[in-house]
Design a protein around this nucleic acid. Structure first.
Length: 154
DNA sequence: GCCAACGTTGGC
DNA sequence: GCCAACGTTGGC
């Protein structure tokens, strides 16, 4: 069992949006970074814990809890000429971009980026490191415990 | 294989 | 809208 933090722009897909979907599940389309792709393709397991993070918005932070809900499969948007995620170098025989399904479990209170930075036990979190832009990052078991404990208290 | 140019992310 | 950081591209 591993843990992850996955960023989504709430204007695109917020935790509320995903909870409103059938099965509360969304294909995590649009990742176009190899490191992030490799986490989905090579490292994620069904049932892994996911911190659902809102980025590119007024108050960025953790907005919900989710889980990995599928094994990896090709991201369809890479083949779609009309999609902004279309990749001319991808083809169906050798898909370049893989994704997993993510099932939203619950909306939480927002733990803002500023609040995360105040937490000494989270000092080494990938998301808090200078210049980090990766949209998917591993979360340690200790970091996961700290954050979920905090959510239960509040 | 180097590296300059360019594009993107994402907080502020 | 700005800009720092960093990934990707492509000429050489």
């Amino acid at each position: 069992m591993n843990y992850w933090l996955m960023k989504s722009e709430p204007d695109d897909a917020s935790i509320d949006d995903v909870l409103a979907l059938p099965k509360q599940t969304i294909a995590w389309y649009g990742v176009r970074n190899y490191q992030a792709r490799n986490f989905m393709r090579d490292a994620m397991q069904v049932g892994d814990g996911v911190l659902f993070y809102h980025s590119g918005c007024a108050v960025p932070g953790i907005a919900g809890l989710a889980e990995v809900a599928s094994t990896p499969y090709p991201d369809d948007t890479q083949f779609d000429h009309k999609s902004k995620y279309f990749d001319p170098k991808a083809n169906r025989e050798e898909p370049r971009w893989m994704l997993v399904d993510v099932r939203a479990l619950k909306k939480t209170r927002l733990i803002s980026l500023a609040e995360l930075r105040e937490q000494e036990p989270l000092a080494d979190m990938r998301i808090l490191q200078r210049g980090n832009r990766l949209s998917i990052t591993p979360v340690s078991a200790a970091e996961w415990r700290h954050i979920t404990n905090k959510l239960m208290k509040a």
